[in-house]
Each structure stands twice: as structure tokens, then as C-alpha cells.
Design a binder for these strands. Sequence first.
DNA 1: CTTATGTAGGGAAAAGCCCGGG
DNA 2: CCCCGGGCTTTTCCCTACATAA
Length: 275
Amino acid sequence: MEELEPSDIKEEPEPEQIKEEQEELSISRDEEHFSDSQDEDESTSTTDGETDPQNRVQESQCDSDVGKNAKQTQIENKPFTCEECCKSFRRLCHLKTHRRIHTGEKPFFCKECFKCFRESSSLRRHMMTHTGERPFFCLQCHQSFSQISNLRTHVRTHTGEKPFACKECDKSFSEKSSLRKHMTTHTGEKPFACQDCDQRFSRKSVLRTHMRIHTGEKPFACKDFSRSYNLTSHMLTHTGEKFYACKDCSKEFKQMSYLKRHMLTHTGENCNKSN
DNA sequence: CTTATGTAGGGAAAAGCCCGGG
DNA sequence: CCCCGGGCTTTTCCCTACATAA
Ligand SMILES: [Zn+2]
Ligand SMILES: [Zn+2]
Ligand SMILES: [Zn+2]
Ligand SMILES: [Zn+2]
Ligand SMILES: [Zn+2]
């Protein structure tokens, strides 16, 4: 699991970390262009403000809210204040940990995959991805999770709870990130531009898929596709519809093109040298 | 009609960050 | 102090039903 992207691992040698993003930046198939300060996949181009990267300003003073923050500190009894961002903490050791955000320091690293973390507990939690430990279980569907908060989110898929409501329309969503994605349908923002044609997309992952058009990557170019599905028609009595069933997992699709796309999910080795 | 592709929601995995007990 | 675990938040990604253009 967890295939290495070409560009991960790299720890920013740059002093000026570009928003600390790595991830492949090379969506377009050649060149390097695309330094893309745009964020990841589905993104609200971020409220600027905090942790802002790159250029100038480097406001080390937290001007505006100094008074407010000081007051806050008073009230909450948080005597230790970060000089970079003016956040305050009750304990010095927490401030020390916090400061690593600004220094970029990540003292804990995984011996398995060499990823680095700012906190020891983050590393410990990360190790579960290697051990496969998933201690939390959904009572309704028995699915397991490595983090209890992910389980809690998952449970909403059973309860139907949708705490995140759009202000622009009457839709609601079970996850905040879903609402964020939805908002792009109102704003029309499409931060991800294809470098090889002039289309733009609202999500990075969609651009990635789109690039298959330019790279020519075909789901089944290397395989006898006809052997990878069953044509079933068990619904014939009602609708006359046919279904294309995946031979690997027996899911059914109304269109063969859906199945082709689906087959990408268990593609893998068998696309090697066989014809 | 079929197929390929864009759209958009559902949802999972993993990490970021903060906090308090010991 | 540190270590550690709990917990909320955020980021990133995958999957696929549906609409539509070719
Ligand atoms: Zn700070
Ligand atoms: Zn690792
Ligand atoms: Zn469940
Ligand atoms: Zn809306
Ligand atoms: Zn393109």
C-alpha cells in the first residue's frame, strides 16, 4: 500500500518551503512548469491568513489582535505565547512543540517509510498504517478504523446526519470537506488548469484523470477486455437493462465504459507485459 | 444507440494540531 | 519538563451515479 509518489519523501531542502506542499506537482506530462501554488485537490483556495507561505510580509508581529490575544491569554491563563503567530499556551512544552510549525522541525521519523513528524504521537499513530492496526469498529457495519474520529464521521453515513449546510442553497452534507467541494459549484472556481489544453477543473484529482487523455493511458489497452466482465441480464424482466459485471469483484454497471473506468481500481500487475 | 468524459457527492485514510494527566 | 493518549480539524484522495457531448 502507499505507493511512493515520485516526489514524496523529499524533505524540502529549500529554506523557503513552498507552503510545504509536495505531492506531485507534475500533472502535465513533461516539463516542470506548474509550480502550482494552488492547493490540493478540493480546496477552498484557503482563507489566506494563517501560516501563509512564501512572499514577503513575514509579519512576525501579530499586530491586529494583539490586544485581543493578550486578553484571551489572560482569561484562559495561557502564559506562553508564540512570538511568530501569537497563539498562547498553558504550558511551555506545548509552545515548544508548537514552534516547530514555524521552524519546520520534524524530529520524529518513521523507520519504515522515512516520513517525518512534529510530534511523537503523530509518528506513533502513523505506524498503524504499517502495522494495519485498526482498533475501532462500527457497530452497524463492522467496518474498522484506525482513528476513532474517522469512525465517528463514518457513523454519520448510517445515521444520515448532515451537520454542514450550504448557505447558498438548501443542501447539507455529512462532512465539511463535502460542503467545501459543493461550494465550488456555486463559485465556479476552477483552480486546476491543464497545461496541455485549456481546460480547467475544480479538483486536482479530476485534472489527474483528465491527463489520461493527453498521455494516452487507457484502462485496458494491454488486456483482453472481453474476459474481464460478465454480461448479465437478471433485471431483464423489468427493465430490459443489461449489466456489465466486473469479474474481479462482481459489481455491476449499466455501461461498459463505467466498468472500464472501474477496472482501473483493480488494475495493477496484470497490465504488464502480456500483450 | 454507444462510448468517453466532465460533474459532483459520498466517503475513507492519514496527518495536523491542541490539550491534559501522570 | 517529557511521554503519552485523546480528540477535534484538515487535507488528500478514491469511487462512481449521472448528464451530456461526440
Ligand atoms: Zn506560532
Ligand atoms: Zn512510515
Ligand atoms: Zn458502519
Ligand atoms: Zn449550495
Ligand atoms: Zn488537457
